[in-house]
């Protein structure tokens, strides 16, 4: 076969692979090129975050508004401190906003639902959400149930 034909087909092969790579990066991994979206961080303290992972979504009324950036534990208080990365600029969520850990479907992934409050004062970047409700853990629920049954 002529060398030129070989060169052209190898070139096409490499080009096809690059197209596949861009597809895998943008469409599958969800990497967005261009301007980095503006975000700010909030913290929230939970008594229980079992099953919540980094990169889990943060939503208001079911609409994505950010993601979980980091989870670590405050051993002294026995609480988890979750760092939330919220899209946009601070100044839209009031200071009495609540955060709840919810589950998608029955077996689905854990995510955080925010419930904006009515206060006039707004959360600034780095502020901590204090009105929180942690993840429901089945063992604890069953434990409560059994204790109550025993008491009555």
């Amino acid at each position: 076969m002529r060398m030129r034909t070989i060169e052209i087909s190898v070139g096409a092969f490499v080009a096809a692979a690059i197209v596949a790579m861009v597809f895998l990066a943008v469409r599958v991994s969800g990497v967005s090129f261009g301007a980095e979206q503006e975000t700010y961080k909030l913290k929230a303290r939970f008594d229980e975050v079992a099953g919540l992972r980094r990169r889990a979504r943060v939503s208001i009324a079911g609409v994505n508004v950010g993601r979980v950036a980091d989870i670590h534990v405050d051993i002294a208080y026995g609480e988890a401190i979750v760092t939330l990365e919220i899209d946009g600029k601070p100044g839209e969520l009031s200071i009495d906003t609540g955060a709840k850990i919810l589950t998608e479907g029955i077996l689905g992934a854990r995510y955080i639902g925010l419930l904006p409050g009515a206060d006039e004062e707004m959360l600034e970047a780095g502020d901590t959400i204090s009105e929180t409700q942690g993840a429901l853990v089945l063992e604890n629920l069953i434990g409560d149930f059994v204790t109550r049954m025993g008491a009555s």
Binding site: F13, V14, A16, A17, I18, A20, M21, L24, V28
Partner: peptide
């Protein structure tokens, strides 16, 4: 092989 893997992944998806 890595180039073929890229094509494989894209086509499989």
């Amino acid at each position: 092989l890595p180039l073929l893997t890229l094509i494989f992944n894209a086509i499989a998806i």
